[in-house]
Simulated assay, not measured.
Amino acid sequence: MGNMTLFHYQTPAPDLTVEQLLKDKWQGGKKTVHLMRMSKSVLDANNEPIDDWRTPLAAGTELVFTFPEAISTYLADEQSALTVLFEDEHILAVVKPAGIATHPDGPGETGTLMNRVMAYVKKQGGNYAEHIHRLDKGTSGIVLIAKHPIAKSLFDRMIEQNVITRTYIAEVDGHVKRPKGTIRLPIGRDRHHPAKRIVSTSGQSAVTNFRIIERKEDTTIVEAELETGRTHQIRVHLSHLGHPVTGDTLYDGHATEDGTYRLTATALAFVHPFTEQQMTINI
């Protein structure tokens, strides 16, 4: 399979070499950058390979990036719909319904969000799609998808550095007294229950900011914003406060009639690393 052009880019400033752009500005992984160099994956505006990666480029130089062997192995699930909230040459923002996993646990598995995404990408002639973060199976909402390996590398680092603001809406049991607050409690594995997480002094640091949106008869609607992204973080933190997510029986929430729990990832905000524009994506 030949190279596929994935995006065009205009250099914003002079004195930036191709190597600096890929390695330093975009934090491209060594393997990806090496593969791109060997396969002459960086072209000029006339689609001619740029062989000199160490000479500074003039501001406004147009580059065309292609990626050899950038192929994801998810099976395409063409039977299920996919809601796309945002798309450009670098990323997709899609909605994961409650009740399906973000990605397969093993080869050949289908029925997950990434199987739906792969079908969508393949219809557009693409072969690459990788999730940048995950949502629990029972949580619905926005998931970011990388459309090429450099985007994957860059957004992974943005997640690690907590520069992507992730906002959730939860309905929780009972009446939360404080109108807003910050929960700073480390989260670790529950040794007695492999699927559970607990507040644990030996766990990883975890920070959740919250504010009350609405008080109902027996529940409270809470907006929560993650500063860290630990497994089950919002569910564990709110349960520890004595207000588990409604329907989240794993963490002692009151069961719901439909068996789901009330937690949705409703917004993402970040500075787009390629366009340098402030982005906010909402459901």
Rank of each mutant, 00 (worst) to 15 (best):
G108N: 13
G111H: 09
T112W: 05
T112H: 10
T112N: 13
M114A: 07
M114V: 07
R116M: 10
M118D: 07
M118G: 11
A119N: 07
Y120K: 05
V121Q: 02
K123W: 07
K123F: 04
Q124E: 12
G125T: 12
G125N: 08
G126M: 08
N127Y: 12
N127I: 04
A129R: 03
E130C: 12
E130V: 14
E130I: 08
H131N: 13
H131Q: 14
I132F: 07
H133T: 08
R134A: 05
R134N: 11
L135Y: 01
L135A: 03
D136Y: 04
D136K: 03
T139A: 14
T139P: 02
S140L: 11
G141L: 11
G141C: 11
I142G: 03
V143W: 07
V143M: 07
I145M: 08
K147T: 12
K147F: 13
K147W: 12
H148V: 15
H148E: 15
P149S: 12
I150T: 06
I150Q: 07
K152N: 10
K152I: 02
S153W: 02
L154C: 13
F155G: 11
F155L: 12
D156Y: 08
D156I: 09
M158V: 10
I159N: 03
E160H: 06
E160S: 11
Q161C: 12
Q161A: 13
Q161M: 06
N162S: 14
N162R: 09
V163R: 02
I164L: 02
T165R: 11
T167H: 01
T167L: 01
Y168N: 02
I169H: 09
I169Q: 14
I169W: 08
I169K: 07
A170F: 01
A170D: 05
A170M: 14
E171A: 01
E171I: 09
V172E: 00
D173T: 00
D173F: 04
H175I: 08
H175T: 09
H175W: 10
H175C: 11
H175E: 14
V176N: 00
V176P: 00
V176E: 00
K177A: 14
K177L: 14
R178K: 15
R178C: 14
P179T: 05
K180E: 15
T182D: 02
